[in-house]
Simulated assay, not measured.
Amino acid sequence: MINGRKLLNGAYIDHDIVIQQDRLDDPLQTCLLGKFVEGKHVYRQTFIIRSYEIGPDKTATMETWMNLLQETALNHVTSSGLAGNGFGATREMSLRKLMWVVTRIHIQVERYSCWGDIVEIDTWVDAAGKNGMRRDWIIRDYYTKEIITKATSTWVIMNRETRKLCKIPPQVRQEVLPFYSTRLAIAKEDNDVEKIDKLTDDTAERIRSGLAPRWNDMDANQHVNNVKYIGWILESVPILVLQDYNLTSMTLEYRRECRQSNLLESLTNSTTATKNKLKAELEYTHLLRMQADKAEIVLARSEWKPKQIKHKSSS
């Protein structure tokens, strides 16, 4: 068994697809497989952008990128041989009923791929302070090796039963220590580390209420998948911005869990608008909160740049 797939007579099998070992250089075949590069410090996986992963402008979305980052991270844990019986948890974490939860993620997008494009994602981990873990990613165009997206995130450990944060046990630290890499996907000077201003009913320009999580929004850890929050955050962004601008940067700070029974509100406020003859850039602050008691779920900041208009050539 390799990366969750059976190995039979030298061939990788995934359902009815058989991938011969002598064809592993073909990106159409290796999209189902990941591999370690540079020793065991970097895990690399290749993906083809599917038709259901693109938005109205026929390119991948921020949610697509976040889903692929999450998939690569989980496959990294599985392929490392550390996976226990939890969702992304190591064996020692599973024994102690622990799980990873993300507290902050920052992603910078140079461009979004189109349907049928092939991307290559690298991911690695490192310590974050005394009691956290940092995970970074880089997304490249498979053929040109152009870096099109960078991301960094911070994770802590939570007890699955008490839902309380706890320190990383020494046994878990020893498991992940051999995989640590000190490199950075985003340089410190380029990372968005500024505090995100909180929004209220008085400061928010737009409020969208009545957002209800569905059963399919829940993940294997029995809380709303963190990628789902992005869609709800964008519910309160002006439609003209969604149509005419690309989301080029997003920072999310996760405050608490959300369950299916919770009803949510999405708040948005414009913080900057810089315009000149060459470009117009927008920045927004967001808050996703419980509708009943106004408890904060996610604070976020987004940056937008106008989409490039493709002019038709005259005949």
Rank of each mutant, 00 (worst) to 15 (best):
A83S: 12
H106I: 01
I138V: 14
T123F: 04
I233S: 03
R104T: 08
R23N: 15
E296I: 12
R301Q: 14
G132E: 00
I118P: 05
L98T: 06
N216E: 15
K188Q: 14
V176K: 12
I148W: 00
H15W: 02
G55Q: 14
S266E: 04
C114A: 14
Q260D: 08
I168P: 03
K150I: 12
L278R: 09
R104A: 07
K58Y: 12
T72S: 10
N216F: 13
N226L: 01
H106C: 10
L74G: 11
T46Q: 07
M250V: 10
I48V: 08
P27C: 02
I49Y: 06
R134Q: 05
T59G: 04
T90K: 11
D197Y: 05
C31G: 04
Q291H: 10
I118V: 10
I139M: 08
Q260A: 13
K310C: 05
S302Y: 00
I49F: 05
W65L: 15
K167A: 14
S153F: 09
D126A: 05
I157L: 12
V101T: 08
E283D: 11
D16H: 08
E189V: 03
V227E: 04
E146H: 03
A73C: 11
I2A: 10
R50L: 07
I196H: 01
L68C: 09
N269R: 13
L184D: 09
V172A: 09
S80L: 04
Q20N: 15
Y52R: 08
A292K: 15
E38N: 13
E71M: 11
G84M: 02
T154S: 07
M250H: 06
D190E: 14
W232G: 00
S314V: 14
I2E: 03
D219I: 00
H223Y: 03
S302L: 02
L165E: 13
I309W: 10
Y52A: 11
L199N: 01
K58G: 06
L242S: 07
S266Y: 07
E63D: 13
A300W: 03
I157Q: 13
T123M: 02
E253K: 12
N221R: 01
R256V: 04
K294P: 09
R111L: 02
W304I: 01
T103L: 12
V42H: 11
V227R: 08
Q291P: 01
D25T: 15
R214C: 00
K6F: 06
E38Y: 10
L264D: 04
G55C: 06
P169C: 12
L242D: 06
L264T: 02
S315F: 14
P56V: 11
W100A: 06
D26L: 06
I118W: 09
H311K: 15
L177A: 13
D26C: 09
T90W: 09
R255M: 15
D136E: 12
D219C: 00
Y43E: 05
I48P: 03
L264G: 00
V102P: 03
L247V: 01
I17Q: 11
V101N: 07
E283F: 00
D57Q: 14
R289L: 04
K310I: 14
D16Y: 08
E63G: 15
L95M: 14
D219K: 01
H76M: 11
H15Y: 07
T103C: 03
D201K: 13
R50V: 08
M1G: 13
N269Q: 08
